[in-house]
């Protein structure tokens, strides 16, 4: 989508005023045109904090958010520190999203404060590609500390916000993150179905929702999950009517 040039020049002025003006920021693009064009910097800023939360408290969306982060970390340039609260992260699942085990350091923290402290240690180290942490709540001050720790570096800070209790939206708390995402799992890519049998599962899909970004507009998108290199893709648009999921018998061509 082409912007009017006035808006573009206004954006450049704003960016210059914001500080670090003319230096090009290092970004990690998603590699999909429709996403990168809608992001303010053309990708995820490498020296900033980004937040991701699952849409619902269930385990399915939680796993989708985890793999979303794993895909981003897989495309980061260096080692990854993943700070966990519980040991339920399954490394083969991460490997199949592109994050190989020799790149990841796992640290188990006892509570949220320790998660944030360890993330800050990783960010200050300046030799990591990405730092991922899982917390339930992070106050504005803590996220601002993380953002400050990430500035001037090349480590992308990713925070996975878990659901504190039923019904409480983890993204309701204000935060200093540059982008805030919400990820939900969506029905996978439809495969041709055989009659009276369950179809197989195609490539998984996610409903990702950029709730807030600094310097840009929110948007929602249905994407296909990461492949083995950690890249997400955009679903091909069906020209014809999409095949109904489940056991609808397709009219044969003879009809």
């Amino acid at each position: 989508m082409s912007e009017p040039s006035v808006l573009q020049s206004l954006r450049d002025t704003l960016r210059a005023i914001e500080g670090n003006g003319h230096r090009r920021r290092a970004v990690l693009p998603f590699g999909a045109e429709r996403i990168d064009s809608r992001l303010a910097d053309g990708g995820l800023r490498l020296d900033a904090l980004h937040e991701v939360a699952a849409a619902t408290p269930g385990m399915g969306d939680d796993a989708s958010a985890t793999l979303f982060l794993a895909g981003i970390a897989a495309r980061a340039w260096g080692p990854v520190l993943w700070v966990v609260r519980r040991r339920d992260l399954f490394a083969p699942g991460l490997y199949q999203s592109g994050l190989s085990p020799d790149r990841v350091l796992y640290a188990e923290a006892a509570d949220d404060a320790e998660v944030l402290a360890l993330m800050e240690e990783g960010l200050r180290h300046r030799a990591l590609g990405a730092v991922i942490g899982e917390t339930r709540r992070a106050a504005m001050a803590s996220t601002r500390r993380l953002q400050l720790a990430a500035e001037n570096g090349r480590t992308i800070a990713l925070l996975l916000k878990r659901h504190a209790r039923e019904g409480a939206d983890p993204l309701a708390v204000p935060s200093a993150a540059v982008t805030r995402w919400r990820v939900a799992s969506a029905p996978s890519t439809p495969l041709p179905s055989a009659p009276y049998a369950l179809t197989g599962i195609g490539r998984a899909r996610w409903d990702i929702d950029l709730v807030r970004q600094r310097g840009g507009e929110p948007f929602q998108l249905l994407v296909e999950a990461c492949d083995e290199t950690g890249r997400i893709a955009l679903p091909a648009r069906m020209v014809d009517r999409p095949v109904a999921a489940g056991g609808a018998v397709a009219r044969t061509a003879a009809a």
Binding site: P101, V104, A107, E108, A110, A117, L118, E121
Partner: peptide
């Protein structure tokens, strides 16, 4: 290969050696 030893030291001195690990297939 960036040197991770200082980071490992910092983390281990905070949470202990048993809570920092890598996965292995």
């Amino acid at each position: 290969r960036p040197d991770l030893a200082p980071l490992v030291d910092a983390i281990v001195n905070r949470i202990g050696t048993r809570r920092l690990w890598r996965a292995r297939a």
